Simulated assay, not measured.
Amino acid sequence: MTIQIFHNPRCSKSREALALLQGQTLAVEVIDYLKTAPSLAQLQALHQTLAVPVREMLRSNEDEFKALNLGAPELSDAELLAALAAHPRLLQRPIVVNGDRAVIARPPELALSVL
């Protein structure tokens, strides 16, 4: 099975997680989500696999988060996922997926927990 990593090459944590995975001699599919944004359906599936609140998938320190008022508690999961689909930069990184298991690899060593 191929391990997937939702990766931002400019992010040091994402680079560290990728290096850890590659050091395990695994087949790793690198998804540069800023170049190839995940669809709403892919984000919904990723949310289900992660089994965390949608808010944990969001990067709250990004300008778009503040500009779109995504910290508002009344926003539904559907609204937050739609914002992620429209603004992929908001996706927390890195996210590592292995079949029906996934983790937000912060710290990067968490990437190994889904192997």
Results as ranks from 00 to 15, higher is better:
Arg106Cys: 09
Pro73Asp: 15
Lys66Ala: 15
Glu79Val: 10
Gly23Pro: 02
Thr25Ser: 15
Leu90Phe: 05
Glu16Asn: 15
Glu29Gln: 14
Arg55Leu: 06
Phe65Glu: 00
Ser60Gly: 07
Glu64Tyr: 03
Ala51Gln: 15
Asn61Cys: 07
Leu50Trp: 01
Leu112Ala: 09
Phe6Leu: 09
Ala105Ser: 06
Leu81Glu: 11
Arg15Phe: 01
Thr2Lys: 12
Asn61Leu: 03
Gln24Lys: 12
Leu40Asn: 02
Leu58Glu: 12
Ser39Gln: 10
Leu80Gly: 02
Ala45Arg: 12
Glu74Thr: 13
Asp32Ser: 11
Val96Asp: 10
Val103His: 06
Ile95Ser: 10
Asn8Ala: 15
Ala102Glu: 01
Glu74Ser: 11
Asp100Gly: 08
Arg101Lys: 10
Val30Gln: 03
Ile95Asn: 01
Gln48Pro: 03
Ala51Trp: 07
Glu56Asp: 12
Leu50Tyr: 00
Ala78Cys: 04
Glu109Lys: 15
Leu84Thr: 01
Leu91Gln: 05
Val97Glu: 03
Leu70Glu: 02
Arg10Lys: 14
Cys11Phe: 08
Val96Tyr: 11
Phe6Val: 00
Glu109Gly: 11
Ile31Leu: 13
Ala86His: 04
Glu56Ala: 14
Leu26Ala: 14
Asn98Glu: 09
Ile31Phe: 07
His87Pro: 07
Asn69Met: 01
Glu74His: 11
Val97Leu: 09
Glu64Lys: 07
Ile5Cys: 07
Ala86Leu: 10
Glu16Pro: 13
Leu46Trp: 00
Ala51Ile: 13
Leu40Glu: 04
Leu21Val: 05
Met57Thr: 05
Asp63Tyr: 02
Asp63Met: 11
Pro53Glu: 14
His87Cys: 04
Pro108Thr: 05
Leu112Trp: 06
Gln22Asp: 01
Lys35Gly: 14
Glu74Ala: 12
Leu80His: 08
Asp32Trp: 07
Pro94Ala: 13
His7Glu: 06
Pro88Val: 04
Arg10Glu: 11
Ala86Phe: 04
Leu20Pro: 09
Met57Phe: 01
Leu20Gly: 09
Gly23Leu: 02
Phe6Gln: 03
Ala67Ile: 01
Leu90His: 04
Asn8Gly: 13
Asp63Thr: 11
Arg10Ala: 13
Ala82Cys: 12
Gln42Lys: 04
Glu74Asn: 12
Gln24Val: 06
Ala105Thr: 03
Arg106Lys: 14
